[in-house]
């Protein structure tokens, strides 16, 4: 009698349960149009033809009372030599440096799939994000330009991310937003894939290809401003309205490790 075989039976049942959680989504024919695998020598800055920088402290801490000053120093933003980009938030006494990179003016697209595979930083007051702004931000202003937060995380909840839309009438503390949490894991211990799939009718939010939020035109309490090109942003903020201040117990430095960013269109 083979006991091992019999013991497998309950396992198979369990796997069946898990399979029920998978989703039936309409098939898509995504074509890769833009990507960065972050290949390059350790310590070098990301490809200047793909990424630009936001520098300094912005107005009012980038509008959120954030504490960090953004730099383009390799200490804050550089390739690790293993095919990753690392954005590092550093504490020096009571001041903080970090980095915020963007494709503004270099790559902008309307609709499509935007995804990044990455591992987040952690700790109270740490606020990493992969997000997008409408290309007309300089002329139309925020929130009229629209903001698509593909993922952001509060470091004091390293197992929870949120996907969010900010637009006219639904911005700041009143956006359209949903959280997605890992029951037995964290976003800072392993790589996860964060993505949106965006078309003229809706924006779908994914973690590891699991659709956890669909926002349709009618779901926003205001104007739908997502029919124009957007550019991508990756950053690690320290402190600010969304996340609160770092505490004495927040470990520093903190790193966001990005394996790749890819953009597809249909």
């Amino acid at each position: 009698m083979n006991t091992k075989l019999l013991l497998l039976l309950p396992l198979i049942v369990l796997m069946g349960c898990n399979a029920d959680e998978s989703q039936q989504l309409e098939p898509r024919n995504w074509q890769l149009v833009w990507s960065d695998d972050f290949e390059g020598a350790a310590g070098s800055l990301p490809n200047a033809s793909k990424w630009a920088y936001d520098l300094g402290t912005g107005q009012g801490g980038w509008g959120n009372q954030e504490l960090q000053s953004y730099t383009n120093s390799p200490a804050n933003v550089s390739l690790d030599g293993n095919g990753n980009l690392v954005i590092t938030a550093i504490r020096a006494g009571n001041s903080f440096t970090s980095a915020r990179i963007k494709t503004q003016g270099l790559f902008e697209q309307k609709y499509g799939r935007f995804e990044a595979r990455m591992k987040t930083p952690y700790g109270p007051g740490i606020w990493p994000a992969f997000w997008m702004l409408g290309s007309n931000v300089e002329t139309a202003g925020w929130p009229q330009c629209g903001e698509i937060d593909i993922m952001e995380l509060r470091g004091q909840e390293p197992n929870v991310i949120a996907g969010t839309l900010h637009g006219p009438g639904y911005s700041g503390s009143n956006p359209v937003s949903k959280k997605y949490g890992l029951r037995n894991g964290r976003f800072d211990t392993e790589f996860h894939i964060f993505a949106v799939e965006w078309d003229e009718n809706k924006i779908d939010f994914f973690v590891d290809d699991f659709l956890y939020q669909r926002i349709e035109r009618g779901d926003v309490n205001g104007e739908w401003v997502y029919d124009q090109p957007f550019f991508m942003i990756l950053n690690v903020a320290v402190g600010g309205n969304y996340v609160g201040f770092p505490t004495a117990g927040t470990p520093f430095p903190q790193r966001m490790i990005i394996d790749y960013v890819k953009v597809y269109s249909e």
């Binding site: 109270p124 740490i126 470091g155 390293p158 927040t250 470990p251």
Partner: peptide, 8 residues
């Protein structure tokens, strides 16, 4: 060890 609250 880092706790679920992000604190060491």
């Amino acid at each position: 060890i880092n706790l679920p609250t992000g604190v060491n």
